[in-house]
Structure formats: structure tokens, C-alpha cells
């Protein structure tokens, strides 16, 4: 090797040695702990997400079934205003409460209006829950 190459080697080695830095003691341990924690959180997140999906699905099913039953009851009750049964009783109760309460404000809504408001409220709640736990989660 000639002198020029030797000087080049000196420069290259000198640069390489001088540029090197060392991480602090325990860097790898700290990082591996961080990774273990990250994995654990991810596992928990997955579990929670699965559980929430089940809860949302069950709640949505219950609400849907309730809606269908309610709609059926409204339909079956409409032909017989004086008929017996749980729904008629509920409707009468709502009617009497509604008349008394709303008359205070100069309004006189029927029981059907309350049922529609109730269904709309339930639909909004279902959407809010689904949006919070399923749709928004899916974006992230």
C-alpha cells in the first residue's frame, strides 16, 4: 500500500471512529420493556374492541327487535282503541300523562307522538353508540 492510500486509510478510520456515538446503558432493556408494554396494550385493545363489537351488536339487535315489536303493537292496537293488553295500557298511561303535562304548555300530543319520539331517540342513541365504538374506531 502506498503512502497516499495509507493517509486515505487514516482519514477514513479516523472519521469512522470519531463519528461513532454510544447509546446510554440500558437502552435495549428500556426499549424491550416498551415493546412488551406496547404489545400488552395492543392485546388489551383488541380484546376490548371485540367485546365492544359484541355489546354493540347485541344492543343493536335488542333495539331492532324492540322496534319491530313496538311497530307491530302500534299496528295491532290501531284497530281497537279500547282493546286490552300491555301496549294499550302503556299508551293510555302516556296519553293521560302527556295530556296533563303538555297541556301546561298549551300542547296536546297523542300517545303515538310519544312512541315516535321514543323510537327516534332510540335510533339516535344506537347511531351514537355505533359511531363511537365501531365507525370511528375503524378510521383509526
Amino acid at each position: 500500500m502506498n503512502d497516499f492510500n495509507k493517509i486515505e486509510e487514516l482519514i477514513d478510520t479516523g472519521m469512522s471512529v470519531s463519528l461513532r456515538e454510544k447509546t446510554g446503558a440500558g437502552f435495549s432493556d428500556k426499549l424491550m420493556r416498551e415493546i412488551t408494554m406496547m404489545k400488552e396494550f395492543e392485546k388489551q385493545d383488541k380484546k376490548t374492541f371485540k367485546l365492544m363489537n359484541v355489546v354493540v351488536a347485541v344492543a343493536a339487535s335488542i333495539i331492532l327487535v324492540s322496534g319491530v315489536i313496538l311497530a307491530w303493537l302500534i299496528g295491532s292496537g290501531s284497530g281497537d282503541e279500547s282493546g286490552a293488553g300491555a301496549f294499550s295500557y302503556l299508551k293510555d298511561g302516556i296519553n293521560s300523562f302527556g295530556y296533563k303535562f303538555m297541556s301546561l304548555f298549551g300542547l296536546s300530543p297523542t300517545g303515538d307522538v310519544f312512541v315516535y319520539i321514543l323510537i327516534a331517540g332510540i335510533a339516535i342513541s344506537v347511531f351514537a353508540v355505533v359511531e363511537r365504538f365501531v365507525i370511528r374506531r375503524g378510521y383509526n
Binding site: L19, R20, E21, K22, T23, F27, S28, L31, M32, I35, T36, K39
Partner: peptide
């Protein structure tokens, strides 16, 4: 995932030099 330590130990100092620069 424990094998990731091997990757960390191989690259940490050289990568740290770059980050410090």
C-alpha cells in the same frame, strides 16, 4: 418478539450516531 433485541443491539449505536448528528 424477544428476537427484536438482536436487531436493536446490532443497530443501536450506529443509528444513535446518526440521530445525534
Amino acid at each position: 418478539t424477544d428476537l427484536f433485541r438482536e436487531v436493536v443491539d446490532t443497530y443501536k449505536d450506529r443509528a444513535y450516531s446518526l440521530a445525534v448528528k
